[in-house]
Design a protein around this nucleic acid. Structure first.
Lengths: 124, 124
DNA sequence: AATATAGTTCAACATACGTTGAATTATATT
DNA sequence: AATATAATTCAACGTATGTTGAACTATATT
């Protein structure tokens, strides 16, 4: 019902859709650099643009993708609302680490159980 | 020399190029499903195609991308070399987990140190 | 020798996506 | 009121990439 993979889906330990979605957003060189700066606490658009030598509209674009998957939060400055501050969403980061760790856990690796090939008698 | 990011690069704890490269390969729904089956020990092309209901040439294509970044190994059957068996490269998986864990470590999150905005006196 | 099988490679297509420059919004300053 | 500033949105472009069907390679079987 969740998906129609005959064999594989039964033991998938995580929400694969969410994991793929977030990995896709992170798997981009400049976005990963932006995220890295956010991990260090740097936050406003202009700072990111200066540090990474990227135009502000590109920063905006990449940040909107990071926001779309919940990895980054936004807050406007209380004194001068022209400034917006970006930060890593801690809960999403924890979720990401948990999902990634569960999926890529080396202990999940199983030895080959041949259902096919000349050393098997099941498959044609 | 390594790269020309003025501020951000100094404390990046991992090889960002390799991490991005591998995440890019994994951040694709069907490839993640293939990799999931390989974690479970299923290995030959035909099995993957049957389980995921995908044509063998597509399986080949995705597996070649997983191989290209070292995450998957290939071995031909000793008895009948028409069959090829795919497996997760344990060393690469460990590397991936180490890099991911180091980069997305929640302890890396720092509070904002304003270099910009109205609450700062440095930046215009 | 001829046929079948497992898998790969190739060419072509459609779509997704990062990048760019200009226009736009919203707030603050003069 | 007019100008400046921080950021976003929009339209357009070029490239990258997943998908498909057919051709091809290599090995095994009859």
């Amino acid at each position: 019902m969740l998906n129609y993979i005959p064999n594989g889906s039964k033991s998938v330990p995580v929400n694969l859709e969410l994991l793929t979605e977030r990995l896709k957003v992170l798997a981009e060189p400049k976005r990963l650099l932006i995220f890295n700066l956010l991990m260090e606490g740097v936050q406003c658009n202009c700072e990111l643009g200066d540090s990474l030598q990227m135009p502000p509209n590109l920063i905006s674009h990449h940040l909107s993708k990071l926001r779309a998957v919940g990895l980054v939060d936004v807050e406007r400055d209380a004194v001068d609302s022209r400034w917006v501050y970006y930060s890593v969403n801690r809960a999403a980061l924890d979720e990401l680490n948990a999902a990634f760790g569960a999926f890529f856990d080396p202990n999940r690796i199983q030895p080959r159980r041949p259902n096919c090939g000349p050393q098997s008698l099941i498959c044609p």
